[in-house]
Design a protein around this nucleic acid. Structure first.
Lengths: 207, 207
DNA sequence: ACGATATTTTGACACTGTCAAGATTCATTG
DNA sequence: CAATGAATCTTGACAGTGTCAAAATATCGT
């Protein structure tokens, strides 16, 4: 007890090893980003808040980028959940189901704005290289969207003027554009979000 | 000549005063951003490249943010030009005129991707405060778009299911979404840009 | 108990934005 | 022309960043 108690500052009851640094880092980083955006997250502050030294995180994440990718992945998983829940819902009206998705998408992107920016922002996709697993998740996600669009076209809920791929791209871009303009602070009036989403649905539906 | 020649390093032929630092900074910064994005621009490197000391730029731009805003403003002015040229074009078919705008918008956003990101990105609109003049320019720009949308609705080129404001917001969001996905590197295949734009037009037009 | 391996730390480097104080030049008076 | 005040530019400094290398410590399989 003599050695351990007076030689180091960190071995005072807590272990030298953190135990679950990976998880702690991920969670803490997610919180920091949720509260203050990506630019509020620094590896040093993160390490400090978790209670380890500056470079400790680098043994669990090769890069800052790798950390960000991991956080983005969680966002995609949540998004995936959303699509699944909708498919299993009791909503039989497919038009309404589509409208529901649009509204939920916008709402979710707004509630988790910083994570959303990470998922589709230049920080990861342009400035750095997205992780292999993140790329995979992202592709899967779009594929599911594409499949759904295809189905909606076949049932004439959506127009078939263009191919399923093009339609999927454009409709998604519309959703994405709305979310970006809101999240980035270009649209400041958040009160009309609902109406904007509704107008988007009107534009996309075939009627 | 004795005093001036051996006392300082900078007074060796060139003037101590740069002459047009403001302009040089703006131009050089624009180039740096065009080539390497916002994150490639540092005040220090910029000053170095222009040939002045680190803090010289701060006598012409209060902030790095103020510099960025100035660059963004130029982007808006170019965008404004675009709309004006279209109105004065000889294209009489309003649907086609609208389609032309969409394609030019996407093309321009792609050619000046970094500047576009600056114009509508979080860097300025969320992380910092946009300059008063930038805000004004931005509002004007949207107002012109809104007026046009209104006109197109009255001539039944665009559906009037929703108000002009909502329609303007959603159509613009669609354009913006496409450009963001391309610029941010989420869509990597640039070969289909034309087709995507075409599909967007199809979705927006009333027919 | 020992040696390999995983984990964490300290030190260091090259960057960044920007503030404060001093130096230099310019423009405008007297 | 000389002097004074304003504009402009420089040097020094501070706190912060990501991340590499080498050393320290802990854990685990033998």
């Amino acid at each position: 007890m003599s050695k351990a108690s007076d030689r180091s500052k960190k071995t005072n009851g807590d272990n030298y090893h953190h135990g679950n640094l990976y998880g702690s880092l991920l969670q803490c980083a997610t919180e920091i980003i949720r509260d203050g955006g990506v630019e509020a997250l620094s590896m040093r502050k993160l390490a400090d808040r978790v209670g380890v030294s500056r470079t400790a995180p680098y043994h669990h994440f090769k890069d800052k980028n790798e950390l960000l990718c991991a956080i983005a992945e969680q966002g995609f998983q949540r998004q995936e959940m959303l699509l699944l829940q909708l498919k299993e819902s009791d909503q039989q009206d497919l038009s309404q189901q589509f409208a529901d998705y649009v509204h939920t998408y916008i709402q979710l992107a707004h509630e988790n704005r910083e994570q959303y920016d990470l998922m589709f922002g230049r920080e990861i996709w342009r400035n750095s290289e997205p992780t292999a697993s993140l790329q995979k998740l992202s592709r899967q996600h779009f594929q599911h969207w594409l499949n759904w669009i295809d189905k909606l076209q076949q049932k004439s809920i959506l127009r078939s003027t263009d191919s399923a791929l093009r339609t999927a791209q454009v409709t998604w871009a519309t959703l994405h554009g709305i979310c970006r303009l809101l999240n980035d602070g270009v649209y400041t009036e958040e009160s009309n979000v609902q109406e904007i989403g509704e107008a988007a649905v009107q534009m996309m539906l075939s009627n």
